[in-house]
């Protein structure tokens, strides 16, 4: 598990739609644009396939940031999937914010198949912003909280034992 050591590198999980953003990332490759290697792309047919739980899961499993890429409004290969994404993401953003997550860690971008340079720009920007924030390390925090809970439980169990029987 990564810690706040000097060699920590941000890990960004990206969900790209097949038709626009995934293709744009392919174009960035064909054009040999260099960008930060901190991103891992998961291909979906449409950004509309993005279940908000995937984002929660990515954070829970150790992502420092999550990037969603879809077609520009009006350009969805499936007519309007990206509008559904926009609605879900807007709600999800609010929820993540309420949970205390910095807004730079979660980003939605419309990137068309011809915008290879935008992939490069967005990825580099996001990696830098997340790097500045430092590790999110949800798995580590879960472990800490679990430990705290265990300690608390142990403490409660222990004190219960000490309580005299006649109290019950």
């Amino acid at each position: 598990m990564e810690t706040k050591s000097n060699n920590w590198e941000p890990r960004i999980v990206a969900f790209f739609c097949n038709w626009c953003t995934y293709t744009a990332a392919d174009l960035a490759g064909v054009s040999r644009m260099k960008y930060a290697p901190n991103i891992r792309v998961i291909r979906l047919m449409c950004s509309g396939r993005l279940d908000p739980q995937y984002v929660m899961m990515a954070f829970a499993k150790g992502a420092d940031g999550v990037l969603i890429g879809g077609c520009h409004p009006g350009d969805c290969h499936y007519v309007e999937g990206n509008y559904k994404t926009l609605r879900r993401v807007t709600l999800l953003e609010r929820m993540l914010h309420d949970l205390g997550l910095e807004k730079e860690r979660f980003r939605l971008e419309w990137i068309s198949a011809s915008e290879g340079d935008k992939v490069k720009k967005v990825v580099n920007e996001m990696v830098e912003q997340v790097r500045a924030l430092g590790p999110l390390d949800m798995p580590g925090r879960f472990a800490d909280w679990d430990k705290e809970m265990e300690e608390l439980e142990a403490h409660v169990n222990h004190s219960q034992k000490e309580i005299p029987a006649h109290v019950h």
Partner: peptide, 25 residues
């Protein structure tokens, strides 16, 4: 096969070939 309905189903009753929940998760 866009999968927008799959993501929307509150009971997880819709499955998608090649892009199912267990595959993506």
């Amino acid at each position: 096969g866009c999968g927008t309905c799959v993501a929307a189903c509150p009971s997880g009753a819709i499955k998608q070939n090649l892009f199912d929940d267990d595959e993506i998760t």
